[in-house]
Design a protein around this nucleic acid. Structure first.
Lengths: 244, 244
DNA sequence: CGCGATTTGTGCACGCCTTCACAAGCGCCT
DNA sequence: AGGCGCTTGTGAAGGCGTGCACAAATCGCG
């Protein structure tokens, strides 16, 4: 078992061990665990899988298996060391590097994202804003100046930006994605409702706000049809957790 | 558009037919298919599973299986009737009802959501905005007036609002959720980074913008560690999609 | 009218994920 | 020191989702 104890000692960049290949489902939950850990107001320095699972809204066995995947160090009979676990997860997620992020599209949504402090407080630095509209270029948002998209490539390379956020209309999204890729960006968070075509080494995650509502609408429709039927079924599964 | 219900249960006109119990994964993809169908500029009135799958960014076999689950009407050798398929999916998702949605929290993000026209154009009506801050009450956004959250319960009942969107800080989210539930809301879209506790008959979907970035950050971290290792990486896969 | 081209619908196998249940380990208390 | 209660880590089973590969069905055309 490789000891990838994360030390802050600079100067050993080549010693990053083989990365644990975590299941995708586990990766998606690590940020949840991290948030739950940070929100713990409890003064105790350890927490049981049961307690953390409740705080994160998941099954405790699932949480233990997730943590075991990253070779975590819990103590039987005691639980997990909160500080150590936070450190471990932040290291795995690469959050200790406070990655630079650029945002393209300062419209309705982009404006809100630029001002969203949840990014800054959870491991990221928005370092540049871009828009194609000359009327918006020069506008100052949250201490940053909106630049024209033509400057994207130069700035992204200079700042070694690896993550880009697309908050443009769908019609512009593919062109922006191409530009981001050309600038060396290898991870894209796409808020535009469209499919992006990118090289295989670029990761894309998509957030479509309307789709979330449509999924809820389906469940509404289903619930309505069930209540109209005789012998309406009881409620199905739903995650319930203790409030903070 | 006539309310063309699908032909099952031909003997009981007034009742909604037994709802097909679609896999959750399928449900989550139906909105994608719907968007792809609407974006089709092609003048033809039918489309093959291959074509639609490409437009939606999924495997064609998966798409066929998804559509078969909802008793779809494709024609072998021809494809799917675009208009009929749109109608079918919109019916299943309950979008033909243009459900009323209320939004709580008119801060940075909430303001953007209130102005987001993607909701209106894809089956929803935002009918009420609420905030706890007296300074915001009375403000007009996109033709709507922000009301105080104390009015939530009365208005939600009056308008029969079934879907609520939470865009408040995390500290207020649980209280707002309780209020929504008390007002009869049975579906909640939560943008606050916290776990909500709700009754079993209430559906909750969560969108955490920072989590999405953190997942991307993990992949960045992984990619960086891989490039430092011998063996390099092979990129042969080809993501293909219909360009904008 | 029949044949071939085309496309849907689906049986099947495989792999991932979840969940249960329990052995192993740890610390505290007597 | 030893036993006891608590908690982690994990083997195993079951369910779910995915994608291949092919039979069934439909249309167009000669």
């Amino acid at each position: 078992m490789s000891q990838q104890r994360h030390e802050s000692t600079p100067g050993n960049p080549g010693t990053v061990p083989a990365f644990p290949d975590l299941p995708e489902a586990t990766i998606a939950r690590l940020p949840e665990y991290l948030r739950a850990l940070h929100n713990l107001e409890d003064g105790s320095d350890t927490i049981s899988s049961e307690g953390l699972a409740a705080a994160a809204g998941v099954n405790s066995a699932k949480l233990r298996k997730d943590l075991s995947h990253l070779g975590s160090y819990g103590t039987r009979g005691v639980g997990y060391d909160v500080a150590l676990l936070i450190e471990q997860i932040e290291y795995i997620l690469g959050l200790d590097q406070r990655r630079a992020v650029c945002l393209v599209g300062v419209g309705n949504l982009g404006h809100a994202l630029a001002g969203y402090d949840g990014f800054a407080s959870r491991g990221f630095r928005i370092v540049a804003l871009f828009d194609a509209d000359p009327a918006k270029v020069g506008e100052r948002i949250n201490g940053m100046t909106v630049r024209h998209i033509d400057e994207l490539r130069r700035l992204a390379v200079e700042e070694a930006i690896a993550i880009g956020v697309i908050a443009t209309p769908a019609s512009a999204a593919q062109a922006v994605a191409d530009e981001l890729v050309a600038a060396g960006v290898t991870s894209i968070l796409n808020f535009a409702p469209c499919v992006l075509s990118v090289p295989a080494n670029v990761d894309v995650r998509k957030v479509d706000l309307a789709i979330e509502l449509q999924i809820l609408s389906f469940h509404e429709h289903r619930k309505a049809s069930l209540t109209a039927l005789p012998g309406g079924r009881a409620s199905s599964d739903n995650q319930e957790a203790v409030g903070s």
